[in-house]
Design a protein around this nucleic acid. Structure first.
Length: 462
RNA sequence: GGCCCCAUCGUCUAGCGGUUAGGAUCCAUGGUUUUCAUCCAUGUUACAGGAGUUCAAGUCUCCUUGGGGUCACCA
């Protein structure tokens, strides 16, 4: 059975790049009817926070990616890791290193001036003398000293890392707490993970983890290292480039469907297809089609996708989501009409909310240019007449087509063009020259409000 | 700097030795729409450079260049 996992460290929010690797992992599991596990990597007590872990879980909830089983917290498994540390110590596969931080720093500096790769020199690897006093030792694992560490990466292909690139790295700190590369290998093995899908930045951790797998006699999973997502300039994605926190996208009015669709196409493709429902992603996803190269974050495309999903979202669901943006349309008796009239002109829920408010709130000011252009003297007369006509037909006006018919008859009897009434009417109703169709707007507002807005405009605009 | 990875329109990508190098987005133009948006149509734009291998190279090899990752008692 395919078992994948996402293993964030709770040092902050869920990063947009993290969401993509999580999505790939989740899709792999779903596609193969396997399991997708969540593990919180909180071995560094100084850095992690509970709030961060909560925030990450919340983000998963928002996008609708559910995990199987309980969330695993590494901080609760220290006893387990201790067993393996002792085992390696007893077997002579790991050893205590009494080097102080100062000594280590000095060694690094020396190596740097010689332009060498900085690495631990193994001075305590075969040490059997009297340990120095006052130093609580770290535990280091014995990495191979020659040859290569070989593995096949599902994305990158065959990898050969020279053993000289991997030093005897620390598996337990001076205070006994285990370190990342050690516990990742143990947990992935113990949790039965078969497919490790993670960011490119972990590529160099893989040989280290393989050292642990080998020392403990665990079977290797398949590794898949996905290239990074960069900003629009091709540089590392940072907060200055816009939102990196997944939940910021929620706040900006993006739909989870759009975000996921956007992310899945970053580094993965299925021919020419651009639009993928979650179900389609699951059936079509194949890690073999993951790209080797990094990709750039591109807001235009995300916006386009978001607009697409808004347009195709059932109104009832839209209304529900709009609540978070200060718009309550669920009680409005013309909700369907209102959303139909506006959903095609909002690329985000924020913009959609603006469009709705534009219709729902009586204009208090009128766009100057619009007034100049549309509100000529004859326009006022025409508007006044039109208001009278509306009022006289009050009981017959309900649907947009009713209003449309009335307008048609009106311009015909007056022998004027549509533009003569259309523009001034629009400015009266919305205060601006752009917006939804007039028929729809009037139907949403009803005769009373429509007439009131016309009268208001006639009074206000000189 | 050492090691490793990557390289097709501005961006996301298709391509897996023989294609007029395709799609999407963006941009521009036209059409639909009383406006705007949507929608539809059309158009501009790409194989980083150089050597090889081959009858044939975007596709294979090497070099150069450019970009990225990584070198912790962080994850």
């Amino acid at each position: 059975m395919t078992v994948t996992r996402f293993a964030p460290s709770p040092t902050g929010y869920l990063h947009i790049g993290g969401l993509r690797t999580a999505l790939f992992s989740w899709l792999s599991a779903q596609h193969n009817k396997g399991r997708f596990l969540l593990r919180i990597e909180d071995t560094d007590m100084a850095r992690n926070s509970e709030e961060a872990a909560e925030a990450i879980l919340k983000a998963f909830e928002w996008v609708g990616m559910s995990h199987d089983g309980e969330v695993v917290y590494q901080s609760k498994r220290f006893d387990l890791y201790k067993v393996y540390i002792d085992q390696l110590l007893a077997e002579g596969k790991a050893y205590k290193c009494y080097m102080s931080k100062e000594e280590l720093d000095a060694l690094r500096e020396e190596q740097m001036t010689r332009k060498e790769r900085t690495r631990y020199d193994g001075r305590y690897r075969d040490f059997d003398g009297i340990p120095p006093e006052g130093v609580s030792p770290v535990i280091r694992i014995k990495a191979p000293q020659e040859g290569v560490i070989y593995f096949v990466d599902g994305v990158k292909g065959e990898m050969n890392i020279a053993a000289s690139e991997v030093d005897d790295f620390v598996i337990a700190r001076g205070d006994g707490a285990p370190t990342y590369n050690f516990v990742v290998a143990i947990d992935d093995a113990l949790m039965g993970v078969t497919e490790v899908i993670r960011g490119d930045d972990h590529l160099y951790n893989t040989p280290k983890q393989i050292v642990v797998y080998n020392a403990l006699g665990f079977a290797l999973p398949n590794f898949n290292h996905v290239a990074m997502i960069n900003n629009e300039q091709g540089k590392k994605l940072s907060k200055r480039d816009g939102a990196t926190d997944v939940m910021e996208y929620k706040a900006m009015g993006y739909l989870p469907e759009a975000l996921l669709n956007f992310l899945v196409r970053l580094g993965w493709s299925h021919g020419d297809q651009e639009i993928f429902s979650l179900e389609e992603m699951v059936t079509l996803f194949d890690p073999a089609h993951i790209n080797k190269s990094s990709s750039n974050f591109n807001l235009d495309k995300l916006l386009w996708l978001n607009a697409h999903y808004i347009k195709n979202m059932p109104n009832s669901k839209l209304a529900e989501m709009l609540e978070a943006f200060g718009v309550d349309v669920q009680g409005h008796d013309r909700m369907e009409l209102l959303l139909d009239a506006t959903k095609e002109r909002g690329k985000t829920l924020v913009e959609l909310a603006e469009q709705i408010n534009l219709i729902l709130s009586t204009p208090t000011q009128y766009d100057e240019k619009a007034v100049q252009k549309a509100f000529k003297e004859d326009a006022k007369v025409i508007l006044g007449d039109f208001a009278l006509v509306l009022q006289s037909q009050k009981d017959a006006l309900h649907l947009p087509c009713d209003y449309h018919k009335t307008m048609e008859v009106f311009v015909e009897t007056k022998a004027i063009g549509f533009g003569k009434i259309g523009m001034p009417l629009r400015v009266s109703l919305l205060g601006s020259m752009t917006g939804s169709g007039l028929d729809e707007i009037m139907a949403i507002l009803g005769v009373e409000e429509t007439v009131s807005r016309i009268e208001n405009a006639l009074k206000t605009i000189q």
